[in-house]
Design a protein around this nucleic acid. Structure first.
Lengths: 140, 140
DNA sequence: CTTCATGCAAAAAATTTGCATTTTG
DNA sequence: CAAAATGCAAATTTTTTGCATGAAG
């Protein structure tokens, strides 16, 4: 909890219990959407309102605490900000696994960007497919 | 129009006027969200309903005619299916430009995938930043 | 002619807002 | 204390659904 408090303050946000609970849940599971976060937070903090979850996810995303991860055919999930990495997204169960590699050829990318005079902010590389768990279910 | 008719049939869908108009609009602009598509299609086909646009975008996405492009902080846009490429997404104006390069190190990716026993389906690489047009506005 | 798609209106789901009250720094 | 956040209910926005009619193959 201590940890999330400082992340919030470093990013210029007040450290409320609600925010820390939300971060706790996201940190615990890695990637969660709004409803999942709400369902989980309400267990330990029953008085929180869904509107507060929405408001906080928005402000924490805007202030660099969270990263929004928009998904094909699903509600966006959120993760705690960290260096860019790859997402392996299962089309069957929706589970997301992080891979802490940079698989993007940054030199070629830089060429493209300077060519287009496009000011880079960040990137996201998502791989969609079927996770090992769902593959084994389909076989059996 | 002829062209879109065959794309639809090849993918097992009936070629209705509504579908062809929708594809026409997306093909013309590259990337559009549901509302933008509806607003554009209604100009040449005033009787179309928004529900039909929703239904068709869904079915055309499921049948491999369209690709859904979920975006951070915006409604998803749709593009006509083509080989994987890079998206340069402007955080200011929301414009998206395609780059037909593969900047992903596929060899390393394959290693990761076989390691995780993850069955690859497709990928998306999105670069967020500021396009040259919006950069020049901010300067002036 | 049979199957599938359309358009409409209504329903459901998702997200945002206003405001009185409470909490944080 | 002042500024900002919460919780609630209501309002909006977005998306889906059911069904009678119409179009496609």
């Amino acid at each position: 909890m201590k940890n999330y408090m400082s992340i919030l303050k470093e990013n210029g946000l007040k450290a409320t219990f609600q925010r820390m609970h939300i971060l706790e849940v996201i940190g615990m599971y890695g990637h969660k959407d709004v409803d999942e976060i709400y369902a989980e937070v309400i267990k330990t903090h029953p008085s929180i309102s869904l509107a507060t979850v929405y408001k906080n996810i928005l402000i924490m995303t805007q202030n660099g605490v969270l990263i929004e991860l928009p998904l094909i055919g699903r509600k966006a999930k959120y993760e705690i900000k960290k260096d860019s990495h790859v997402h392996l997204i299962c089309k069957e169960c929706g589970n997301i696994e992080d891979e802490d590699f940079n698989l993007v050829d940054m030199n070629s990318l830089k060429e493209v960007l300077s060519d287009k005079k496009f000011a880079y902010f960040n990137q996201e590389l998502n791989i969609y497919g079927t996770c090992s768990h769902c593959s084994s279910i389909k076989v059996s």
